[in-house]
Write a protein that binds this DNA or RNA. Sequence first.
RNA 1: UGGCUUAUGGUGUAACUGGCAACACGUCUGAUUUUGGUUCAGAAGAGUCUAGGUUCGAAACCUAGUAAGCCAACCA
Length: 551
Amino acid sequence: MEEHKSINFIEEIVEQDLKDGKYKSIITRFPPEPNGFLHIGHAKSICFNFGLAIKYNGKCNLRFDDTNPETEKTDYVNSIKTDIQWLGFNWDAEYYASDYFDQLYNFAIKLIEKDLAYVDDSTSEEIANLKGTPTSVGSDSPFRNRAIAENLELFKDMKAGKYPDGSKVLRAKIDMKHHNMLMRDPIIYRIKHAHHHRTENKWCIYPMYDFAHGQSDSIEQITHSICTLEFVPHRELYDWFIQQLDIFPSKQYEFARGNMSYAITSKRNLLKLVNEKVVSGWDDPRMPTISGLRRRGFTPQSIRLFWEKVGIQKRENLIDVGLLEFCVREELNKISLRRMAVLDPIKLVITNYPADKTENLSAENNPEDENGGHRSLAFGKELWIERDDFMENPSPKYFRLGVGLSVRLKHAYIITCTNFDKDENGNITAVYCTYNPDTKSGQDQTGIKVKGTIHWVDVKTANTAEVHLYDRLFTVENPGMEEGDILEYINNDSLKIIKNAMIEPSLSEARKEDYFQFVRMGYFCLDTESSADKIKFNRTVTLKDNWAKKK
RNA sequence: UGGCUUAUGGUGUAACUGGCAACACGUCUGAUUUUGGUUCAGAAGAGUCUAGGUUCGAAACCUAGUAAGCCAACCA
């Protein structure tokens, strides 16, 4: 029996449309409003829209939905383009809803001429009051039956700038008693004497979303206009405009947005985190923004894999952030350069090693990559090791150092702990050991087996670096659903700064585009603010740690 | 006194459109390992929101409920 590939409901529609010859090829689009930064949720839409075009050999446009001049900026346009490209996608055409303002205006005229739109002088409160509620019908505006000629005249005067903001609107004439509130004579044009990031001061009237989005789709001959579930009620209006205007019949399909645990994606709350200085900015590595994830060290591939695994569906969801972490570990395990860094150092002294001796050891860059090559590591009498790798009173399951216990120093020798120093506060200040010269890595013939291997950095050649350890930003799984202020659920330990981590010398030459695994500690990358005299690393994610779970 | 959408292990999705629930993450064993990582072998965990019905057979179809989300911005 032939293997049945599982496709989602939208792909089913696409395949059917293609099979029926409804379209020769498909065109999708990603339609961000340039009023903020893209986040992990947008990535789902990006992956899906661009992915569909790739899979079915169609096209995908980038279209900025810039119909509200008061909130939109060219800066956002640029950040959005950067993020999409970083994710690995290329758009076929770059468009702006504002490119269509003239056509949209003419569409509005056409509607007025068909007596399907009218100018309303009511205030926004009056309009809201007459609109009714979801459970009760609305009623007609006193301006609803203006003559076509008068509407035409007034609308032209609106465009000419004869009226102040908010004094008049153009509304579609549909049905004030419609069960769908969006069909109750929706506003399609409003007056805003505002500077637009692209059309500058050409216009003082701007179309609303519902009068711009579908028509823009139609102008671009978008075959499958894919959006999130909250637009389901808009579909009826979307179709109505296209039908009344008799233009290319783009079709809207909706899927559920993806929510991730311990994260928020509402623009309002994201902005709040930035404004309240809970985070350092939109690209703070704890932010679920694309720029934040990038700075944190997530790879584009891992984000694409994540959304591929999640799939497309129509039900509410809360995806475990652990899945994203799994995806990034999976890729980083294959591509990252292994390096050694000691985050919480204590000194280890090898008592039987000559004080003036230095050896250069060979260390593989990546055991998962045969062609990964090797680097040279200096080794000497005094080393930095992790404080956690020594215990004064080790438990039987502890496979690291304690008096009488042996471990291998990664890429070097097997050592046995002999004693240690402690200060008056009970803190360990130094650990002493002896090494076995016959156990050198790669040429060990002794057959001695040890339970643990620990990482280290040579004291004489080590450099220091600042390392940022990140944890989830929120203390609750679904912060967006909690009552009250989002700030009440901030995890105060989401950032731990280590000022003086000891790093092996080769890490001083790290480049911004490198991905590292600090052996046994996790995946790291250089921070965007890192400089030659102040090296800064970000921890992307820890390694899986069975020992931590057992403890 | 409404409309629309949805409901499958802890989480996210499948089930070739009616043939007895599969995959991934997570969890738990064990093996391997110079990373308590990786890899490998295996296990537990849902009987598909509820109640009826159609059918030889229902997660799927029908009916009635229940629950959740969305809809009353001159936002998108």
